[in-house]
Amino acid sequence: MAIRRGRGVAAINYPTGMNLGGDPTQALVHSTPTGNFMVTLSSVDLGQGMKQIMAQICAETIGVPTDRVVVDTADTDTGPHCMGTFASRGTHRAGNAVIQAAREARQVMLEVAAEELEVNASDLETDGEGNILVKGAPQRSISIFDVALSAHFKRGRSISGRGMFLIPRSYPEKETGAMKPSTCYAHACTVAEVEVDDETGEVTVLTVKNVFEIGRALNPKMVEQQLVGGSWMGISHALYETTEPYYPNRDHGGTDFNQYLMPGPGDLAQTEIIVLERPSADGPYGAKGPGEMCANPQIPAVANAVFDAVGVRIDTLPITPERILRALKAQAPN
């Protein structure tokens, strides 16, 4: 009887969005009289930070600091339609809609600035700090604050824009299954290292090294939040979680957090996260949806590591101590 070590690897990809259902999202952007920008959506922030990311996307596109943008979501009386937050679609779909709306608003903003500065709009640029400058002659400038005031009270222009992003639905061909499930895919590779106690069947995940390719990390700290939390959930799925421990038997289902098991703060694997960026062709600033796929590769990586450690395959999730012990027993020469 001993503690045995093993390691396993898994590599995966994951589609962004819901192409097989038709996948629209809209956004509206407008400026306030003092040059702040309001993004109006009906998209839902589940905790992943959608409001913040949409603010950064809008700010980047208009050319203002992020703190000049307020995101108003989700209210069906004011926010235009969004399919919803699922299928790793939020950042990608809503982000594209926000970019389109923000571009339209930016164009009006530049036109008003052009009138004030008596130049062509195409000769103007933003400095990212709240000013509009004449290209090549930055001493000729106007603040976005003043442009918005002028638009509202002098020139009668609405600095606003509408955005719509739609991936049309893909219908699978009946016989061949030809279809377009996604326009872009995120990728990952995870190496997990485990210890298995072959007397108790208990598995300890020592380390997980996760490499994720996510298109573009729009806000690296928030990407890290998602990936660390997802990696934890993947390990949790691998070793602990189910509502029906003896599926398909319907009994013994947990009804609270004492019976439904997940790793607690004392059960954490040492977790390393490395991010690669291959910008997607159609993503907002190249982003893909990393929120779901980040919890997938740990499951097979842990399963493979368990085999590497004790030489038994557990092909049924979750990989509980009971299943490991039964497999070890079955494998033992009497």
Binding site: V228, I274, L276, E277, P279, G286
Partner: peptide
């Protein structure tokens, strides 16, 4: 977390102000 920028460097522009910044969440 580490960002490994050496991969796909030819496909990525790094001229953005707000995108790619670890701004605090509102």
């Amino acid at each position: 977390m580490e960002l490994r920028k050496s991969y796909f460097a030819d496909q990525r522009k790094d001229d953005l102000h707000e995108i790619g910044q670890p701004r605090p969440r509102s």
